[in-house]
Structures are given as structure tokens and as C-alpha cells.
Design a protein around this nucleic acid. Structure first.
Length: 718
DNA sequence: CTGAAGGCTAC
DNA sequence: TCTCGTAGCCTTCAG
């Protein structure tokens, strides 16, 4: 009971004598959500499970209450400290808690900023000591960056700087529902820390605990994205805030490259690769006199460097400003709204060379930030999410294949060790976890995943039961190249992929960024692909290897290619064309012998997983009107590879065709071929209208590669 | 018409 | 140690 609010509420609450009026008051405060009964159950559950709200909610066993439990727990947790007291005490806390919740939602009446005084317990917040002064809240990307700030701030600075670490990507409030904004703890905490209220127009920051916000992220594209999401949050909820002068928002930049003269006297810092490259070109022969250090994330900087940065904080600070001629709302909205049009246009006009972080610039307009800095994230997001037409691989996947192809033997290796290989030999600056996931996905072979996995799955790589999400931990999994991989990706072509690294001659970056491979057939059609980027997403279904080969052979024979339909290895249902760019997939439904109402499901449509399907048969509240409405009962006898679900249909007068039965039983899905985007031979994004078009494009490029190979092989003749 | 959910590489 | 949040696009489907 550390909170002032809770205590007040408790006092008020105790004034009410009878248990009935207590419940009444609660009902008034909490809306229709809670009965005394539910409170008691909640109290028990809370004692048992603590802050594990999912378990608590499950124990409460009431859908209305589940929402409330969730809402309560997503508030500032420290307020919810359970006293020794009983249900009544709990009720008091919840009352207080909920009123806080309500106030933050309502017009802000009755809730003065002093209700949130210094030292209030938000986990991981380091509050400024002297909030009466003009204080700045530093929002960092992750905990380790917070530690760098804490190490760097002088004792004087600690009076006026608060620090709060952000975890991962911030919610995009422009497209999020009210409900998800409310329950997003990160945003609610930021609001509480700064003292911002909804529906308030700020022409001054007088009422705020912090007068300025400074964001400090890694100096990479994802860091830029996080800055953008934060700008988006403030702009969407309090647009006036960003127009204030002096500016409300700023960023703290750290160098990504530092060079030190080997005689130890001179040193220089760079805030962008463009800037560094420019300097490097000017050095020519003098380059060897300099010692270079690259900084990958904020965690790479030492505490001493942290101190150095904050000693000269003004050199690192860049403020976000509006210039009055422009409507910056348009750019911010375009970057984060639900329509990808603006982002498409921005990427189509994107010129990587115009993207310069000028070290000396101490301010940047929001529009410049979006169109220059943020556009580089959109581009990076495209590059890592959309595969190449040539090898059908995204850069992460390609690096995995690259490392395995380069190994001297093809012995089993742990998935986690493959990741380690990639981190050692390639430029990969992202999380190992994502890499492990990618390896697992490349090796999966359940129906609906790869037709021809390039990697073998030695261990539990996931099954159709849970769509592959039931894979074991990477440290238990082993893999190696599949038998076919070397045939599809001939050794003779390797050097065309890894000769170009863009950095082999760069003494700072010795690792490789392999360019696309040239498999002998367009593998992107065999295993399909899907990716979600910025501006575009892509989806290509799986096709049959033999069909692909036949079409390649037709081209070799100067014949025309023939249309192809999607095909999935091991799939026992059917796939039929259902209009232009659409295919319909059907599971398999058999009539059990003897009983007119009994059916046996022996195959599910593509990308429907056994677990999901079976739970759709349950008669829960959330399934009303769905499949479960048509069935009496079911029995699931499926295993990890086969589907066998016995269904007892409800008796109806109407006789249904097998197709109609599949329809109402949820045994169909759609595959679209209308969103097939790939990077083409020239590394340009291209929309493909048909699999044939992909094969034809591939064919041209592949022929050129054969030519290159021939020239290289016989070069000694000339 | 709106909202939610699934898929996937990233923080 | 493990589970869980967030982005981004497009499609489908329920309400």
C-alpha cells in the first residue's frame, strides 16, 4: 500500500458500512464487471498466481472479468500490491486502481499531476531528482542503453534527466484499437511518467512532469523505426506538443564509427556510414594510420564513452522541429497509417545517396526525418523480408545456406551452431533468435511448409499439428544440407554468389554479404515464400518441382511455358482454380460407413493446422455460429503427420453436397497469386503476374550466369 | 463497412 | 529460462 491513491480510496471505501453498499459502490466504479463472488475468486487466484494475469484470468473463469483483470494488470503494476487484508482490501485497491484507469481515459477531470509524484514506482524508470526544474525524459532502446545513460549522466545531470527503457517496437497508435492502446503498458507508462492526459491540447508544458523527451536508440534502421513510432505516438495524441518551441522532442545520437590516429593524438567520430565512407575516400594511403572501431548497438559503447557523450550532450542532441511552411502531419500520417500508398511512393523515390546524416546538424524537420531516415528503415525492411527471384531467398536465409555450403563436410550440426557460423562469417547484426527461427523454417517439411527443404530436420522441427510452431528449442535441434541442395545449387556457381561481398576489400568489414545464388531452377516457386515488409508484402504458393522443370525445359526447347497450379508435397486434398489469381484448397471428408451423420476428416486445407481446426470444433462462446454450430460431437485421432477427425453432424432436413459440407465445416482456404513480389535480377522490386513470368525472368538471368561460368572456365584460352 | 487474425523477420 | 509483447501488408471472415 505504497500509493497515495490506493490509501485514499481505501479510506473512502471503509466509510461505507454494509457489504451491500460496498458491492454497489464497486459496481458503480467498475461498471458491470465485478460481483462480490468474482472478487473473491479473483482474490484467491491472485494469492495463488501473483502477477501472472493470464493464470489469474483463467481462474476467474468469466469472460467479462478476464477483460478487467487484463486491464488492471496492464496498469502500472506497482499500484497493485495486495495487502494482507481480505477481499475488502482488494476491492479498495481495485477501486482506486480503476478510478485511475478511468481518469486517464476521461477528460482528465479531477486528476492533477501531483497525483503522480516523484519516486512513484514504475518498474525500470529512473526518475529525475528535481522535477520542479525543466526536466528531460530519456527514452532508450532496451535496458542496456539505459545502463549506458545511467553510467554517462553526471550527478548534476541526474537532477534533471529521467531515464526509461523501451522494450522493442512501440505500438502504432494510428492503427491500433482503443482497447489495445489502453492495455499497452509501455504507452500508459510513458503517459504517466510525463504526466500527459488524453484529449488535452498542450500549448505549454507547465503541467507536465517532464518538459522534454529525448529518444536514444541504436544507430541502425530499426532504431530509426522506434524513433518514428514514438513521434507517431506523440503526434497522433498531442499534435500541438510537437509544435512547441523550444522543441519537445529530440534524439540523442551516438557514433557508429570512430577512428583514432595510431599515434594516439587525433580522433574522429562518424554518425553514418555515408559520412565515414566519404572521409575514408579522402584518406587514400593514409588510411593505415588510423585505427577503426565499429559500433553495432548502444551496448557496444563503454561507460567511459557514455560519460564522454553526456559531458558534451549538445554535440549529440538533435531536435525535431516543424517549419511552418509544411504540413508535417501528412508525412507522419503517411508513414504510419493503414494505407501503404504513401510508403510505396516514398520507397519508389528513395535515393540512398541523398540520405546523409550530417553530424553538424542540430535539428531536423519531421518530414525530413520521415523521408530520409525512416525511409531507410522501410527499405531495409523490404530487403530483409522480400526474397530474390533468382534463389528465392531472403538475405538471412541466404547467409544460412551460404555458411552451410561453405563447410568442408556435411556432418550434422546444431541449429544454434549454424547461427553461430552465420554470426561469425557473415554481416548479420540482428538477434540470434530470429536466425534460429529462420533455420528451423528452412528445414521444416510438414504439409504446407517446404516442398523441398534445403536443410534436413534432425529432431523436432515442428509439425502440422501447430503449423510448425511446435518446434523444439534450437539447442536440441540438428541439421545439415539436404541431399538435393548441392544439385540445385551447383558448386561451380558459388563464386558468383559470394565473390561479391561489397566489403571483402574493406579492412573493417571482412565478413560477407552473399549476393543471390543461381540455382538450376527457380526455387522460389518450389518452396514458395511469404514476407511482410513496408510498402509491400509478398506471397507465392508452392509449386511442383517437376512442373517447374518442365517449363524450364520448354524454354530451353524454344517452346512456350504452360500455366501452373500450386502444389504441396504430401497434401492429400485438392486445389482448384477459383477465378483469376485465386485458388481454392479443399481438405478431405469421408463418409463413415453406416451412419449418415458421421464424417471423417482425413485432410485439412492448406495452412490450416490440426490444433486450430480442432479448437474451432469446440462449442465455446467464441465459436458460436462457426463450424461448431453444425456438429454434434467430434473425436480427434490425428497425429503429427496424419489427420483423422471423426465428426458427428447435426441432423438436418436438407441434404448437402460434399462441397457444401466442406464449406460449412471450414475445410477450404484460399491461395492468392495476386501479390507475388520479388527482387528481380537488378535488385528492383517487381510484381509477377504468374509463375510462368517468374520462370521466364529466371531463365534469362540463369542463362547469363552460365555464360559467365563458361567465360571464366575457358579464359586461359584467350 | 469495420475489426480481428494469420503469416514472418525483426526489436 | 521461457513466454510474451510490438511492426508491417494483404486476405479472409465474423459481426
Amino acid at each position: 500500500m505504497s500509493s497515495k491513491n490506493s490509501m485514499n480510496a481505501n479510506k473512502n471505501f471503509n466509510k461505507e458500512a454494509s457489504p451491500q453498499s460496498k458491492t454497489k459502490k464497486l459496481k458503480k466504479k467498475l461498471g458491470p464487471q465485478w460481483t462480490k463472488d468474482e472478487l473473491e475468486r479473483f482474490y484467491e487466484a491472485y494469492q495463488k498466481h501473483g502477477r501472472d494475469w493470464k493464470k489469474v484470468a483463467a481462474s476467474v473463469e468469466n469472460n467479462r472479468s478476464v477483460d478487467m483483470v487484463e486491464a488492471l494488470f496492464s496498469m502500472n503494476q506497482p499500484y497493485l500490491s495486495l495487502p494482507e487484508a481480505s477481499v475488502d482490501g482488494l476491492a479498495a485497491i481495485m477501486t482506486a486502481h480503476y478510478s485511475l484507469f478511468e481518469e486517464s481515459e476521461s477528460k482528465g477531470e479531477g486528476h492533477d499531476a501531483s497525483g503522480v509524484t516523484r519516486g512513484f514506482p514504475i518498474k525500470k524508470l529512473h526518475d529525475a531528482e528535481d522535477l520542479d526544474k525543466q526536466c528531460t525524459l530519456i527514452l532508450t532502446e532496451g535496458d542496456s542503453a539505459k545502463h549506458l545513460v545511467m553510467a554517462g549522466l553526471s550527478s548534476l545531470q541526474r537532477k534533471t534527466y529521467g531515464v526509461y527503457p523501451l522494450q522493442g517496437k512501440l505500438l502504432n497508435v494510428r492503427i491500433a484499437s482503443q482497447k489495445s492502446i489502453k492495455k499497452n503498458r509501455e504507452l500508459q507508462n510513458i503517459k504517466t511518467i510525463i504526466g500527459l492526459k488524453d484529449e488535452t491540447s498542450y500549448t505549454t508544458t507547465d503541467s507536465l512532469r517532464y518538459k522534454h523527451v529525448m529518444v536514444m536508440t541504436d544507430q541502425d534502421e530499426d532504431g530509426v523505426h522506434i524513433k518514428g513510432l514514438l513521434i507517431n505516438f506523440f503526434h497522433h495524441k498531442w499534435p500541438q506538443l510537437l509544435k512547441l518551441n523550444p522543441p519537445f522532442l529530440s534524439e540523442f545520437r551516438t557514433p557508429i564509427v570512430k577512428v583514432k590516429n595510431r599515434n594516439g593524438v587525433e580522433a574522429k567520430s562518424f554518425y553514418s556510414m555515408a559520412e565515414y565512407s566519404e572521409w575514408k575516400e579522402q584518406q587514400e594511403d593514409n588510411l593505415s594510420k588510423w585505427e577503426t572501431t565499429h559500433y553495432k548497438g548502444l551496448g557496444t559503447h563503454t561507460s567511459e564513452e557514455g560519460c564522454e557523450y553526456f559531458k558534451h550532450i549538445d554535440n549529440h542532441k538533435r531536435v525535431f522541429v516543424c517549419d511552418d511552411d509544411k504540413d508535417h502531419g501528412e508525412a507522419i500520417d503517411g508513414a504510419f497509417n493503414a494505407n501503404s500508398k504513401y510508403r510505396k511512393e516514398m520507397l519508389e523515390n528513395f535515393d540512398p545517396n541523398s540520405h546523409h546524416h550530417e553530424t553538424e546538424a542540430r535539428q531536423i524537420t519531421f518530414t525530413d526525418f520521415i523521408e530520409k531516415d525512416l525511409a531507410s528503415f522501410f527499405m531495409a525492411n523490404m530487403k530483409r523480408s522480400v526474397p530474390s527471384m533468382l534463389d528465392g531467398l531472403k538475405p538471412g536465409q541466404r547467409k544460412i545456406l551460404h555458411c552451410l555450403l561453405k563447410r568442408s563436410s556435411n556432418e550434422d550440426i546444431k541449429v544454434s551452431q549454424v547461427s553461430a557460423l552465420v554470426l561469425t562469417h557473415c554481416d548479420y547484426y540482428h538477434s540470434e533468435k530470429a536466425l534460429n527461427n529462420t533455420i528451423i523454417k528452412m528445414a521444416q517439411q510438414h504439409v504446407g511448409s517446404n516442398n523441398l527443404p534445403l536443410l534436413q530436420s534432425l529432431g523436432q522441427f515442428g509439425t502440422r499439428i501447430a503449423g510448425g510452431q511446435d518446434a523444439a528449442d534450437p539447442r536440441y535441434l540438428r541439421t545439415k544440407l539436404s541431399q538435393e541442395t548441392r544439385i540445385l545449387f551447383p558448386k561451380e556457381d558459388d563464386k558468383y554468389a559470394d565473390a561479391h561481398t561489397g566489403s571483402l576489400n574493406d579492412e573493417d568489414r571482412k565478413n560477407t554479404e552473399p549476393t543471390p545464388y543461381y540455382p538450376i531452377v527457380p526455387m522460389v516457386l518450389v518452396n514458395g515464400c511469404r514476407g511482410i515488409a513496408s510498402g509491400w508484402s509478398t506471397f507465392i504458393p508452392n509449386y511442383k518441382l517437376k512442373d517447374v522443370i518442365s517449363n524450364v525445359e520448354r524454354l530451353l526447347n524454344d517452346e512456350k511455358t504452360e500455366p501452373m497450379d500450386p502444389w504441396y508435397e504430401g497434401f492429400e486434398g485438392t486445389i482448384t482454380k477459383d477465378g483469376e489469381n485465386r485458388y481454392k484448397t479443399f481438405g478431405r471428408l469421408e463418409e463413415s460407413s453406416g451412419n449418415a451423420e458421421t464424417r471423417l476428416v482425413t485432410e485439412l486445407p492448406i495452412e490450416v493446422w490440426t490444433n486450430n481446426y480442432v479448437s474451432s470444433l469446440d462449442k465455446g462462446k467464441e465459436n458460436r455460429g462457426k463450424v461448431s454450430a453444425f456438429i454434434e460431437n467430434y473425436l480427434d485421432r490425428s497425429n503429427d503427420t496424419t489427420v483423422s477427425i471423426q465428426i458427428e453432424l447435426k441432423k438436418t432436413e436438407k441434404k448437402m453436397t460434399p462441397e457444401e459440407e466442406k464449406e460449412i465445416l471450414g475445410l477450404t482456404t484460399m491461395l492468392s497469386t495476386g501479390n507475388m513480389y520479388l527482387f528481380d535480377e537488378n535488385d528492383m522490386i517487381k510484381k509477377y503476374e504468374s509463375p510462368q513470368e517468374i520462370i521466364e525472368d529466371f531463365y534469362e538471368a540463369r542463362l547469363k550466369a552460365y555464360d559467365k561460368r563458361k567465360v571464366a572456365k575457358f579464359s586461359y584460352l584467350s
